[in-house]
Design a protein around this nucleic acid. Structure first.
Length: 448
DNA sequence: TCTGGGGTCCTAGGACCC
DNA sequence: TCTGGGGTCCTAGGACCC
């Protein structure tokens, strides 16, 4: 039996832990540039705010409906997440952390009432972290996901399923006819793995509900869609195709990209920001002990600025030898950028991606053809990049992000503020809360 | 004025091989 | 006029997830 545990409205719930006055009010958390709503409280959902809806379309609700907007505080959410995950992980032999706010648990071989265990989990996470969670159990991951969805829906809109569903929803303990009824009352698009496109196509064929999908002909679906759809249907029927993955492999790609606070046309500013991104992906690569075989860079104008000429080039540069050295990756990224850049365009976004990643201890060796030859002919490759980069990471760990950085990732001209990363490229973040749990200086004060 | 930032997997089609 | 029959590998693009 599998469980899916997730935090209700994760980012908003994290904020409410430290600002209880936000409980009961419509709250949204905004994306990096205060651009869109990426998390919504139930009250905000009730106002009709959609996921990823642009802020300028809903800002009037501040006055009209008392909507509160907060800038994303990922440092806080990440820390709250690891607290929640470690608590929940105690309950089952295997745990797969699936995203920042949810995990699968494998309860194979665990005895006792799952509903009781689930209730205990929720109570403990709530008491120890302040975060509200939902729990779903099912004989497959897809069913556990669905059970979780059902529990959450019932919590938010009681009566949806005619007969009440417990706060912890266990499909394993449900009579078959009751499970069918629940499936009949659930939209096919709510199934894990059925996205917008597939949902529309399925509905075009008369498959509206989860029950319709379960009863559809699997061979036909396989030929019309793909193996993913086939597995989804098998899982909904109780045949487990997906296992809990408690030792996920290292990422195959590492990306850092961002929209700018304002459009940028100047190459020098782009070089700075691309250098910062390259520096960040280099850190991430070293963190998972990988080296990259190639660097990919893109910049783009805004499709929303209809009067602007559009230009969104991208390119990939293979590295002679795989590397996670910040200097090597910045140099490659900047070279690419210079080749992609055209003057006169309003760029609003850029990104750096590392691809062809491999484990840093499995890099193919090289025959040193230069040894004994003209030393000046050899490219000035770093002698022992790992040592220097290790020191860099240690310093930044101890003294805070950005304490030591490569010069090209810094502002080239005196910044007009005391923030070294200022300028047009700087993200807007008007309403970010303190990083209560990860910075001593921002720890909440308790009055006595 | 103002529109997120990460990732994964699958498939089709082209290049290339013998 | 008539033009084989297998394979593999790579890439771009699409769909999906949160």
């Amino acid at each position: 039996m599998f469980a899916l545990v997730d935090v209700n409205n994760m980012y908003v719930s994290c904020e409410r832990v430290f600002r209880p006055s936000l409980v009961g009010r419509p709250v949204v958390v905004l994306s990096n540039n205060d651009g869109c709503a990426i998390a919504r409280s139930n009250e905000a959902k009730d106002l009709g705010i959609k996921m990823a809806q642009p802020w300028f379309q809903i800002r009037h609700l501040q006055r009209q409906a008392g909507l509160v907007a907060l800038s994303a505080n990922f440092e806080l959410y990440g820390d709250m997440s690891s607290r929640m995950m470690s608590l929940v992980g105690e309950y089952a032999p295997r745990q797969e952390v699936y995203s920042i706010d949810e995990c699968f648990l494998d309860f194979d071989g665990v005895h006792g009432s799952l509903a009781a265990i689930g209730g205990d989990m929720r109570a403990k996470v709530l008491q120890w972290t302040g975060l509200p969670t939902s729990v779903g159990f099912g004989p497959t991951k897809t069913l556990a996901k669905l059970a979780n969805h059902v529990a959450k829906t019932e919590d938010r809109k009681p009566g949806t399923y005619a007969r009440p569903i417990a706060q912890v929803c266990d499909f394993g303990a449900m009579a078959p006819e009751e499970l069918s009824r629940v499936m009949q009352l659930t939209d096919v698009g709510d199934v894990w793995g059925v996205g917008r496109k597939s949902s529309a196509r399925l509905k075009g064929q008369g498959i509206q509900t989860v029950l319709d999908l379960v009863r559809a002909d699997i061979a036909t679906l396989r030929s019309q869609f793909n193996v993913v759809m086939e597995k989804t249907v098998l899982e909904l029927r109780g045949t487990s195709c997906l296992d809990v993955d408690d030792a996920p492999a290292a990422n195959q790609q590492i990306m850092c990209s961002r929209s700018f606070g304002a459009a940028v046309t100047n190459l020098q500013e782009l070089i700075e920001v691309v250098s910062q991104f390259a520096s960040r992906v280099a850190e991430k690569a070293r963190d998972q002990r990988s080296v990259a075989g190639a660097v990919h860079v893109f910049v783009s104008t805004s499709p929303f600025r209809q009067n602007d000429r559009q230009h969104s080039p991208s390119g990939t540069l293979p590295l002679g030898r795989p590397s996670a050295d910040t200097r090597v990756l910045i140099a490659a990224a900047v070279r690419l950028l210079a080749a992609l850049y055209r003057p006169g365009f309003n760029y609003v976004k850029a990104g750096v991606m590392l691809v062809e990643l491999q484990a840093d201890d499995q890099v193919q060796g090289e025959l040193d053809l230069f040894s004994g030859m003209d030393a000046a002919a050899e490219p000035s490759a770093p002698r022992d990049p790992s040592k220097l980069m290790g020191a860099l990471d240690a310093l930044n760990q101890r003294f805070g992000k950005g304490a030591v950085t490569v010069a090209s990732a810094m502002r080239q001209e005196p910044a007009n503020s005391n923030n070294s990363a200022g300028g047009a490229v700087q993200s807007r973040q008007e309403w970010r809360s303190p990083r209560y749990t990860t910075r001593l200086a921002e720890i909440p004060a308790v009055r006595t």
